[in-house]
Amino acid sequence: MASGSTPRPRPCPPRSPARRPLPTTPNKWPCLHGSWDRTPTSLGTHRNTVRRRLTRIAALLDADLDAPDIGMELWFTLRSPDRDPPPA
């Protein structure tokens, strides 16, 4: 590398299954009854990561995921055999 030139950024590593938030987190969270302690353990991630993901999902859905009827609707929708499979 010539002096004074800027180093090239490293390529991003491939995303691991734990870093695919939208397909995994909304499936686990309702199945564990909205548990903020058991969900991160089940996903192998930090609880703040789960909170951030669910905040993002709630914003995308424009819904309050803490409301029991919304949580139940989400759970039934995710378990529906008619829905498309989550992206890999």
Rank of each mutant, 00 (worst) to 15 (best):
S5I: 03
M72L: 15
P14R: 12
R38V: 11
W29H: 07
L32C: 04
S80G: 07
M72K: 14
L22M: 10
R47V: 07
T55P: 01
T49P: 00
V50S: 02
P7Y: 00
R51K: 11
P87T: 09
T25F: 01
R10C: 08
C12P: 00
R56L: 14
D69S: 14
L65P: 01
G71S: 15
L74R: 08
T25H: 05
L22F: 12
P23G: 08
R53K: 04
R52F: 10
P13K: 08
P87F: 06
P40F: 02
G4S: 10
P23V: 07
P21R: 11
R83H: 07
C31K: 08
R53F: 04
T41S: 08
A2E: 10
L78P: 02
G4T: 03
G71V: 03
G34T: 03
T39N: 04
T6N: 13
R52H: 13
G44Q: 03
L60Y: 03
P87C: 09
I70Q: 10
T49Q: 09
P21E: 11
N48G: 07
S3H: 08
I70L: 08
T41Q: 14
F76P: 00
R20Y: 02
T6S: 15
P9Q: 06
P7G: 04
T49A: 13
M72H: 15
L78M: 09
C31T: 06
L32V: 03
S3C: 05
C12L: 14
M1Q: 07
W36Y: 02
A58Y: 05
P11L: 13
R52W: 06
A59T: 12
D37P: 00
P14T: 05
P21W: 11
P23D: 06
H46F: 03
H46A: 14
A58S: 15
P23H: 02
T25M: 09
D64P: 01
A63P: 02
D84E: 15
L32K: 01
R20M: 12
R15M: 11
R10G: 09
R51G: 10
R8M: 13
V50Q: 01
P86N: 09
R10D: 12
I70P: 00
P30C: 07
I57A: 15
P86L: 11
R83K: 10
N48H: 07
H33K: 10
A88F: 05
L65C: 07
L65A: 08
F76W: 11
C12I: 00
V50L: 06
L32R: 01
D37G: 00
C31A: 15
P23Y: 01
R83N: 11
N27S: 13
P11W: 04
N48M: 12
L74N: 09
P40E: 06
P86H: 06
R51Y: 08
T41D: 12
D64L: 06
